[in-house]
Structures are given as structure tokens and as C-alpha cells.
């Protein structure tokens, strides 16, 4: 039986869903009129980019970058560890993304209070 390249299939799945999430989020940001929907699109783009970063840092047959008590020797031989730098970056990016989403949503609430609508095509006046 010939060996199936599982990583090829996994790469289609992971890269495909990451690029798909970015495109779907971009579509929502550009096409939708409701402000909450636009923020949902932004958070979908955020999720896609995080997935792309983690997928770039992955290494075949790798383990999580956490040493066990015997793990000191793994530096020389044994299974490789995945790249820790993208993971640390994404850890930061998720927390910052929450802050960005919170501030954006508070602006949505503020706009709704003033204009009584949250649709950008119904907001007529520029002044608030």
C-alpha cells in the first residue's frame, strides 16, 4: 500500500480554512451595512490570521514546545518541537484583539445612542 501524504491533506485543510476565513471576513467588512456585522467580520479576519501564523510555525511530527523533566536531551535528538515564536505572537494578538473588539463595540453602542440606528447607510449626519 502506497503511503498517503497526510501532511499534504492537512495543509489543504489548514491553509484553506485560514485563507477562507480571511476572505469571508473581508467580504463581511466590505459588503455589510450593519456595524455589529462589520465588527463580526473583523473578528473573523483576526481568527484567520491567527490560524495562518500557527500553521506556518508547525513542524511535521513536532511536539508542543514544553519540556518535560527528561526533555533536556531532546535538544540534541528525538522529535522536533514546533516553532515557539509564532505561538507567542499569536498569544499576544488574541488578547489585543479582544481589546480592539471591545472598543469597537463600545463605539457601536455610542453611535446607536446618538443616531437611533446602527446601519451605516441610515446615518445621515456627519456630526455627533
Amino acid at each position: 500500500m502506497d503511503t498517503i501524504d497526510y501532511y499534504q491533506i492537512m495543509s489543504i485543510g489548514v491553509y484553506g480554512s485560514a485563507i477562507g476565513l480571511i476572505l469571508i471576513g473581508l467580504y463581511a467588512v466590505l459588503m455589510k451595512k450593519h456595524l455589529t456585522k462589520i465588527v463580526i467580520g473583523l473578528s473573523i479576519i483576526d481568527a484567520g490570521i491567527n490560524l495562518l501564523f500557527i500553521a506556518i510555525g508547525y513542524i511535521s511530527n513536532g511536539t508542543a514546545p514544553i519540556y518535560s523533566s527528561q526533555g533536556i536531551d531532546l535538544v540534541k535528538t528525538g522529535t522536533p518541537m514546533v516553532d515557539p515564536v509564532p505561538q507567542a505572537l499569536v498569544l499576544t494578538a488574541i488578547v489585543i484583539g479582544f481589546g480592539v473588539t471591545a472598543v469597537a463595540l463600545s463605539l457601536v453602542i455610542r453611535l446607536y445612542r446618538h443616531h437611533n440606528t446602527a446601519r451605516i447607510d441610515q446615518i445621515k449626519s456627519l456630526k455627533w
Binding site: 489548514v14 455589529t36 465588527v39 463580526i40 473578528s43 481568527a47 491567527n50 500557527i54 500553521a55 510555525g57 508547525y58 513536532g62 511536539t63 508542543a64 514546545p65 514544553i66 514546533v82 505561538q87 499569536v90 498569544l91 488574541i94 488578547v95 479582544f98 473588539t101 471591545a102 463595540l105 457601536v108 453602542i109
Partner: peptide
């Protein structure tokens, strides 16, 4: 993809907190 730290962060922040602030906005 062997990133348990990021998985834990996404589970705590992405599922619980982001969803609840969206619901409060709605």
C-alpha cells in the same frame, strides 16, 4: 497544531468573553 497555550487563550477569550461583549452590544 501543537499550540496548547494558544488553544487555552482562544478558549477563554474567544469563546466566552468576545461572545458576551457582542451579546451585550446587541
Amino acid at each position: 497544531l501543537q499550540a496548547p497555550d494558544v488553544a487555552l487563550t482562544e478558549a477563554a477569550i474567544g469563546i466566552a468573553l468576545t461572545t458576551i461583549i457582542f451579546i451585550i452590544t446587541i
